[in-house]
Design a protein around this nucleic acid. Structure first.
Lengths: 157, 157
DNA sequence: GCGAAATAATAAGCAACCCTTATTATAAGG
DNA sequence: CCTTATAATAAGGGTTGCTTATTATTTCGC
């Protein structure tokens, strides 16, 4: 079984880096006392960016199923970081919006995210970093196109 | 809350791509009838690469805690894909080794992994791809160095 | 109008992945 | 020999994400 496998392929590296990134983000937010998991932070940021937005739209925007998102929103709402109001235009729907109380947390998240990105790419040339970013973006497009439900035009592309 | 957050940062992209990659790998291995999760495949490949190896060493090499690895090995052993033998040099330790039956599965994994890498980077220039690979490698090194237990000299670097 | 089909959110439950803590068996050092 | 360290694991938990089914509402065809 000689060099049939290479553990430094792009795919292995991506999953390694993703795992390490998540745990490092977790560690840093814990230290600051935010107490949000990376996933929760992600949703909160997505909600902040999207403004008052329906859950289905937000789910599609952050790349999750509606049900998965709903559970996250439950937790964030419990912590008072966002609110769900009835959509006046459709009584089935709810509009999600971050609360004022979320501002400080969002600032912390933005700061920690920036620091983490800086720290983990300290040894990498900015131009190369931009190439990496664009390459990853293209990979995301490719992978989204492979999914069985390729019909929905995901905004992630 | 204008452009305080960018969902196309390296960090978001990495976690997105990792998630999509995992589910696509899962889909492809299911289609072939392997029935291994990406995580299991990863461990199997790691074991194949490392040869007869102690669990602690393998755990460190694949970047998991010993206990996490042990559970994976249980499943792989149940399927007859690897075996644990007593280490003659230390009766506490066990040596992990893939079985002959694993060969076909390993071949499938290698093929699918290669195909997947090719497909997801079809639109990317090979030279740029290599830069991305190296950049991710450096990120992994950085992130490993950040971990609290930075004492253990991880071989992942 | 009005009944059928689509849609928004959610209840319920499961799978994958990874961790920590405590325990057992064995080894190694003073 | 006895304390300490190490290899594996038992036990249990947490995060992330999914699918399926249900309820409330809207919309569309007739």
């Amino acid at each position: 079984m000689p060099a049939k496998f290479d553990s430094d392929t792009i795919s292995f590296l991506i999953s390694d880096v993703a795992r390490l990134l998540r745990s490092e983000f977790d560690r840093r937010t814990s230290n600051v006392g935010i107490g949000l998991t990376p996933g929760e932070a992600r949703i909160l940021v997505g909600a902040a960016r999207a403004g008052p937005v329906r859950q289905t739209v937000l789910a599609e925007r952050v790349g999750l199923e509606a049900m998965t998102l709903s559970t996250y929103l439950d937790r964030l709402e419990e912590r008072g970081l966002l609110s769900r109001m009835a959509d006046p235009a459709d009584r089935r729907a709810k509009l999600v919006q971050v609360t004022d109380a979320a501002e400080a947390v969002l600032d912390d998240i933005a700061r920690i995210g920036t620091e983490l990105r800086t720290d983990m790419s300290a040894t990498i040339d900015p131009a190369q970093l931009e190439e990496i970013r664009q390459g990853l973006h293209q990979m995301r497009v490719c992978l989204i196109a492979m999914r069985p439900d390729c019909s929905k035009g995901s905004s992630k592309a």
